[in-house]
C-alpha cells in the first residue's frame, strides 16, 4: 500500500506547553481519512507540519512520496488546503481571489471553477472581507478543488457552518474524489459527517495518536457489554478497556476487538452476557479517549 502522507518518529515542541513526542501516522493513497481529536490535541499542528508550515525537531514526513519540508514547493503544487481560518486578503473580490490562486497552479481547472462558482452561489464581485462565514468556507473549498489536487488537506472545513453550506461543500468534495480518486485528509468535530464518508480514522489526544484504523474495524471492534456474575480477574479473548459496576447486579464492560462468537467466553467463566451495545463512531471516540486518559497505554492500542 502506498501512502499519500507518511509520518514516522515525528517530534515537535512549541515552547513548554505543547509537545508531539513521537508520532507515526499513515494515510493510504486514495483514502478519505478522518482525523479526530479534542481541541488542543495536536490535529492542527500535525496538519501544519504535513504542509511544511512548521518544522519538526526530529522524524520524517513524506507527502505524495516527497520529503517535507525539503520539497515543499513541489509538494504544495499538488496539495489543496482548506485551513481552519480562511485567510485571504479581505480587499480581493471573489473573482480576483480565483485569478490569484489559479496563477500558482498549472493544473487549475477554469471550467470547473466556474461551475463551482455557480453551484456555490458565490457573487464574483463581492469582496472577500464582506463574505459571510459560509460563503468564505465555500470559496476556500472552491479554490482547493479547482486546482485538481492529488491530496486534499482539510482542517475543520465545515465546523461552525450551517447544514446547507456543509452539504454543498461536502457534495462537491465527494464529487471530486469519485472522479479522480484523490486522497483526503480531513479533521472535524462533526463526527457524523466523517462517519458517512471516511474509510480510515485516526484519533489524536494530547499530542499522541491513540488509534489509526480502517473505519469498519474501528466501528466493529468497540462494544459496550452488560455482564453479570463475572469473576474479578478474567483472561478475555477481546481487549477489556474498562469495567464499571452498575449497582450490585451488573457491570458495564467496554471492549475492543469483539466478535459475536465470543459469547461463549462468558459461560466458560460462569458469567452471563446480558446485552451487547453497538457504539457509533462518536460513542467509540468518546470512550476511546476516556480509557486512553485513565489507563496506561497498552502495546496493542498504540502503534
Amino acid at each position: 500500500m502506498t501512502h499519500a502522507i507518511d509520518i514516522r518518529g515525528l517530534h515537535y515542541r512549541a515552547g513548554r506547553s505543547f509537545e508531539i513526542p513521537s508520532l507515526d501516522l499513515r494515510v493510504p493513497t486514495g483514502a478519505i481519512y478522518g482525523f479526530l481529536g479534542p481541541n488542543g490535541s495536536g490535529k492542527t499542528t500535525t496538519i501544519r507540519l504535513v504542509l511544511g508550515l512548521l518544522r519538526p525537531r526530529a522524524g520524517d514526513i513524506r507527502v505524495l512520496d516527497r520529503p517535507m519540508p525539503r520539497q515543499a514547493a513541489d509538494v504544495l503544487a499538488r496539495v489543496g488546503y482548506v485551513p481552519e481560518q480562511p485567510h485571504l486578503d479581505p480587499t480581493l473580490t471573489v473573482r480576483e481571489a480565483m485569478r490569484f490562486q489559479a496563477a500558482f497552479y498549472p493544473t487549475w481547472d477554469h471550467a470547473w471553477a466556474e461551475e463551482l462558482l455557480v453551484a456555490f452561489e458565490l457573487d464574483e464581485r463581492r469582496l472577500f472581507g464582506k463574505l459571510s462565514k459560509g460563503q468564505k468556507g465555500k470559496l476556500m473549498m472552491l479554490l482547493a478543488l479547482a486546482q485538481r489536487p492529488e491530496l486534499l488537506v482539510l482542517d475543520e472545513p465545515t465546523d461552525g457552518l450551517d447544514p446547507v453550506v456543509r452539504r454543498d461543500m461536502l457534495a462537491a468534495l465527494i464529487d471530486y474524489v469519485s472522479e479522480g480518486g484523490a486522497t483526503v485528509f480531513i479533521s472535524s468535530h462533526l463526527v457524523h459527517e466523517l462517519e458517512r464518508m471516511c474509510d480510515w480514522i485516526g484519533v489524536m489526544d494530547q499530542g499522541r495518536l491513540v488509534t489509526e484504523l480502517p473505519m469498519e474495524r474501528f466501528k466493529n471492534g468497540i462494544k459496550r457489554l452488560v455482564v453479570s456474575g463475572a469473576p474479578p480477574a478474567v483472561a478475555a479473548p477481546f481487549s477489556l478497556l474498562s469495567r464499571e459496576r452498575n449497582g450490585a447486579a451488573t457491570e458495564t464492560w467496554l471492549v475492543r476487538g469483539w466478535e459475536p462468537e465470543m459469547h461463549a467466553f462468558f459461560d466458560s467463566v460462569g458469567a452471563s452476557l446480558q446485552r451487547v451495545i453497538d457504539l457509533d463512531l462518536e460513542d467509540g471516540f468518546v470512550e476511546l479517549l476516556r480509557t486512553f486518559r485513565t489507563l496506561p497505554p497498552r502495546p496493542e492500542e498504540v502503534r
Binding site: I32, A172, I174, R196, C198
Partner: peptide, 14 residues
C-alpha cells in the same frame, strides 16, 4: 452514477 449518488448522500464512493 456512483459519482452522483455518492455526492448526493455524502458517502465514500467506494
Amino acid at each position: 452514477s456512483v459519482r452522483r449518488l455518492a455526492a448526493q448522500l455524502r458517502v465514500n464512493p467506494a
